[in-house]
C-alpha cells in the first residue's frame, strides 16, 4: 500500500501543480499553444522516463487493441478532459467548475464497480466520500478567493 500511496499522492502533486502552472503559462502565451506545448513535452518526458526504466523493447510490445485503447485515452484525457475543463473554466469560472472536477474520484469508483467488477471494502468507499466532501468544502469556500 505504501507504493500505491506514494504514487497516487505524487500524481496529485503533479496534476495539482501543473494545473496552476498552466494558468500562469496562459498569461504569457495563447491557450492553444500552451496545450500543444505541454502535451508534446509531457510525451517527451514520459517517453524518456519509460526508455530509461523499461528499455526500448517496452515500446513495441503492444497489440492493436492496446494502441486503440491508449488512442482513446489520449482523446478522453487531453481533449475531453484538459481542453473541456479549460472551456468550462472560461465560461463558468473556477469556483463552479472546480467542485465538479472534484467529483472525479466518485465517478472513477463508480466506473470501477459497475464496469470493472471491483468490490472495494466499506472503509474505502467511506474514505472516497470523505475526500470528495473535503474537496467540496474547500472549493465552495468563496471567502478564500481574494481576486
Amino acid at each position: 500500500m505504501g507504493v500505491v500511496l506514494v504514487l497516487s499522492l505524487l500524481a496529485a502533486l503533479g496534476w495539482g501543480t501543473g494545473d496552476v502552472f498552466s494558468r500562469k503559462a496562459a498569461i504569457y502565451a495563447p491557450a492553444g499553444l500552451v496545450v500543444v506545448g505541454m502535451t508534446a513535452l509531457a510525451a517527451f518526458g514520459l517517453g524518456l522516463g519509460a526508455l530509461v526504466i523499461h528499455g526500448p523493447g517496452a515500446f513495441v510490445d503492444g497489440t492493436l487493441r492496446f494502441y486503440a485503447l491508449v488512442g482513446l485515452m489520449g482523446l478522453t484525457s487531453y481533449v475531453g478532459g484538459q481542453l473541456f475543463y479549460l472551456f468550462g473554466m472560461q465560461r463558468a469560472g473556477v469556483t463552479i467548475t472546480a467542485p465538479i472536477i472534484g467529483a472525479v474520484p466518485l465517478i472513477a469508483v463508480t466506473l470501477a464497480v459497475v464496469f470493472g467488477g471491483e468490490r472495494p471494502n466499506a472503509q474505502t468507499i467511506v474514505g472516497a466520500f470523505v475526500i470528495v466532501a473535503g474537496i467540496m468544502v474547500v472549493m465552495t469556500d468563496r471567502n478564500r478567493v481574494l481576486r
Binding site: 497516487s8 496529485a12 501543480t17
Partner: peptide, 17 residues
C-alpha cells in the same frame, strides 16, 4: 492496486492546486 483505491487518493488534486 484497484482504481477504486487509487482514484480517491489521486483525487486530492484540487487541494494541491
Amino acid at each position: 492496486a484497484d482504481l477504486s483505491v487509487v482514484g480517491p487518493i489521486g483525487g486530492v488534486v484540487p487541494l494541491v492546486s
